[in-house]
Design a binder for these strands. Structure first.
Lengths: 232, 232
DNA sequence: TGTAAGTATGACAGATATGTGACATTGGCT
DNA sequence: AGCCAATGTCACATATCTGTCATACTTACA
């Protein structure tokens, strides 16, 4: 499954509440999906694979509680974290909610800030990251763990984009990439940026690598660029 | 003592709760031991040497609090990390619990996922060896036993959070950490705090370290921070 | 050798990320 | 109650990065 933006599904039967939450989340940089009932919610979860579900406790038809349980039993949806929303005074239900598989529980009314904070906390817990080994080419070392690049043991001062670009090249050596492919891979698919921008960053990367290593990044005229240890 | 599987001892007088926890932990790949009272618990700890004890606050006979204190005083058991479990509304006791030697504190009800997350965090933090030994980098000394930091033999005035932050950095040198990771590791997984708060504490720590040592804490632009003796 | 297309390079202004001081709040302590 | 240290947040100051241009070079090929 492709890595995607931070999509959050809001399930609540009251449109005004969905709207309020959506505004808060969008301001925080999340993309929102909405559903007013569990049927819609289920299809959306399966189709869109959101990173999280905000689930109202009271829903027409299947209750939120019931729905949470069902999601956790279904392999396709079990991994998706759930935050339950509930009206105040139902504190006792908290246990039920959490036992049903919810990852957190927020009592209405809540501030947008609290919602976003807890949402982040839950996302943080549920997104583990892999460990990577350093990549070496001649005396050029890129260490993803330390987030460092060094050339013959001298640390290189390199910007974020150049770092990603170099990392991509070092993990995809010997092959030529078009500017478009590089924009997709290094900048991330849906950004609209001039192709020429790639040239500029290639230039910056070469400069940062210095005369000892800039030859590793070769221009493939009419096509794009290539990272290679062999001379062209 | 030999390194062994991830055995977790659950101490609670209610069988249903023990069971619920056990299921959650086993799904996460841990082996579970159970005890309903402190006598049993003590024998199991000595005999089986579990990697961690989940200890209910309320227990018949000796209270969980009392028991935690006893474990920490006993050389044979002092090394075993403890997470206290408590019912809601007893937040005030948190300090007591932590002072008694507990390594973390979870309020019931909690989600299985939260439990596992915090459990992992504690296991990660509790390095079996050397937590007693002072860590030195150049003239900077952090002494976990005295809970003190000195720079070139001059004691440093440093707040609790800055201390934990520095301790984390000194035990995890060279590696770059995102603000989120630092919040997890230093603040503890389940706090809802702005990411920028990390910046402020980094600032305070740098200030406390003074011009001789502040360079040890490096900014990794676009990513987070790193503690390193090497120049960036 | 002239020409057109493809690339390299330096400059720049807007966008982002981080540094920093100040403030309100909290909880322990006297 | 009043004080004090610690903490989290904010607003503003700085620093650094990024995308885009305009222009200078190269290369391929007629």
């Amino acid at each position: 499954m492709k890595q995607q933006g931070k999509k959050i599904l809001i399930v609540d039967d009251e449109a005004s509440i969905r709207e309020m939450i959506a505004v808060a989340l969008e301001m925080a940089g999340y993309e929102c999906l909405e559903a007013s009932n569990t049927q819609d919610a289920y299809s959306i979860i399966v189709d869109e694979n959101p990173q999280m579900v905000l689930l109202d406790w009271m829903l027409p038809g299947t209750s939120g509680l019931e729905f949470a349980r069902r999601l956790k039993r279904d392999d396709r949806t079990a991994e998706t974290p759930i935050i339950m929303l509930t009206a105040k005074g139902e504190e006792d239900n908290k246990i039920l909610g959490l036992e049903a598989g919810a990852d957190d529980y927020i009592t209405k009314p809540f501030s947008p800030r609290e919602l976003v904070a807890r949402l982040k906390a839950v996302l943080r817990r549920s997104t583990p990251q892999g460990i990577e080994d350093p990549i070496t080419v001649d005396g050029l070392i890129l260490d993803p763990v330390c987030h460092r690049v060094s050339a013959n043991d001298a640390p290189l001062d390199i910007g974020p984009t150049e770092y990603r670009l170099l990392q991509f090249f070092m993990t995809h050596q010997e092959r030529a990439y078009s500017r478009t492919q590089l924009l997709d891979q290094v900048w991330g698919g849906n950004v609209y940026v001039e192709e020429r921008t790639v040239d500029v960053h290639i230039r910056r990367l070469r400069k940062a690598l210095g005369s000892d290593f800039e030859h590793l990044i070769q221009t493939v005229r009419g096509t794009g660029y290539r990272f290679s240890t062999k001379a062209s």
